[in-house]
Amino acid sequence: MEKSILGYKCTKCAQVHYPNRTLCRKCGHNEFTTLPLPKSGKLLTFTHLYTLPADFEVTSIGLGIVELDGGTRITGQLEIEKPEIGMKVRGDVKMVRNDGYNNYYGMVFYRA
């Protein structure tokens, strides 16, 4: 099954949050429905990180903040040779970290 990152939509004001909140940032309501977040959007900013925590096997990774279609923002890893601010990207949910016991899944973005 294709994996998705879930957004949290306030049942009162329809604001979509990611990551989740107990109370809505816009209206203070406490009930949410989940919805899969879109996977394409535009890159707002990025970096290439060369000092990684010890559990990473690679020597560096790309990281970026993406505004998904619909306006929700998300941080993710980048697999893009030469990223540029404002470029279109598409994402995929993949394993982003393994600490020896657990696999963590998150969004990885590619050039659209």
């Binding site: 990551p19 900013t45 990025f46 990180l49 990281l63 993710g76 601010i85 982003v96 970290r97 998150g106």
Partner: peptide, 23 residues
């Protein structure tokens, strides 16, 4: 950093500073 939305990706304080500096 946020445990689910940032930390798992390998986000560290320098990487947040990097993204901030670029903007």
């Amino acid at each position: 950093t946020h445990p689910l939305a940032e930390y798992i990706y390998g986000v560290t304080l320098p990487s947040l500073a990097g993204m901030f500096t670029r903007l």
